[in-house]
């Protein structure tokens, strides 16, 4: 893993909303790296800050502290204009709700090429049309659909349009914020397959934000679990699921419904109580407990986790 090229690095990220009395720290000291070509999962409950992290990378949310580096260069704060333009093109986002994320009054042609128009990334109109056409074909839609309006499409098709809109910019890095949560079961699989095929073809890197752990397990290479603005555990996905360490991760994984009535009914759901940590004297930090497996814990907890889960002893 460590030999891989780091594409995106988040260092000590802090996002605070509001001022003074109504100040709210949404993200506290979050750091992680995303390697080129991988799918990095970010899971947590609503309000945990997973979307805020995605939006900070998209530079929709102001960053209060820390740095975000793309290919080793900072992308937040004051940056040169060309770099800013390049980032705008290289980092794209796919949104959750295809019903709300497309402009109802614009034709698909415009919806897809709006980014191109803004960055003037095309020579003439014929070239732009060609790009839209290719993007539509890539996501499995017909080129004729360009002249239709979003309301003429089903949820699955609209999500494909949302994906085409990101692809047309020829990005390297895509933030997918719950891209399939609003879709039907049978359509979900289609879109998941589409995303992984596109990744292979175009050598894309994904940040996959989701709350559904069964999907995260299926699609991601590494996963970070976030709780109230802090990453509590980060590991290669299989390791995280087979050997979860942090009590919150354990609670989250135990709550995932199993599609097997016998297992589902026999299973015990663990409940996470944040009061169990004693961080008064012994401050916690983000510790690598085994190769590539990080946990947010203090010294006493680390030694306890090591003996409990037989790691590194």
């Amino acid at each position: 893993m460590s030999s891989k090229e780091v594409l995106l690095e988040v260092k000590g990220l802090n996002v605070t909303f509001g001022k003074g009395k109504s100040k709210f720290e949404a993200i506290r000291d979050v750091s992680f790296e995303i390697y080129k070509g991988e799918t990095f999962g970010l899971v947590g409950e609503s309000g945990s800050g997973k979307t805020t992290i995605g939006r900070s990378i998209m530079r929709i949310n102001e960053v209060t502290g820390g740095e975000i580096l793309f290919r080793g260069r900072p992308i937040n704060g004051n940056i040169p204009k060309e770099w800013d333009r390049e980032i705008t093109q290289k980092i794209q986002m796919i949104f959750q709700d295809p019903m709300a994320s497309l402009n109802e009054r614009a034709k698909v042609d415009y919806v897809i090429s709006e980014g191109l128009l803004n960055t003037k990334k095309f020579g003439n109109d014929a070239e732009r049309m060609e790009k839209v056409r290719n993007a539509l074909l890539e996501v499995g839609l017909l080129p004729e659909f360009a002249s239709r309006f979003p309301h003429e499409f089903s949820g699955g098709q609209r999500q494909r349009i949302g994906i085409a809109r990101a692809l047309v910019m020829e990005p390297e890095f895509i933030i997918a914020d719950e891209p399939i949560s609003a879709l039907d079961v049978s359509i979900r699989a289609q879109v998941l397959n589409l995303l992984s095929n596109l990744q292979k073809q175009n050598n894309l890197t994904y940040l996959f934000i989701a709350h559904d752990l069964s999907i995260v397990r299926f699609i991601t290479d590494r996963t970070a679990v976030i709780y109230e603005g802090e990453i509590v555990e980060l590991a290669p996905t299989e390791k995280l699921f087979s050997n979860p360490i942090h009590p919150y991760t354990r609670a989250l994984i135990s709550a995932v419904p199993e599609p097997n009535p016998y297992k589902e009914r026999a299973k015990k759901v663990e409940i996470y109580n944040p009061a169990q940590h004693n961080y008064e004297k012994d401050r916690p930090s983000f510790v690598e407990i085994e190769d590539g497996h990080f946990v947010h814990a203090n010294k006493e907890e680390i030694s306890r986790y090591r003996t409990m889960y037989k790691i590194g002893v």
């Binding site: 079961v185 049978s186 699989a189 289609q190 397959n193 397990r217 299926f218 299989e238 199993e258």
Partner: peptide, 18 residues
């Protein structure tokens, strides 16, 4: 319906889709 559950898919392979 059952086959398209991600729990039944194997990683790196195409998930069954209708």
């Amino acid at each position: 319906l059952l086959s398209s559950l991600p729990q039944l898919g194997s990683k790196g392979e195409e998930l069954y889709s209708i």
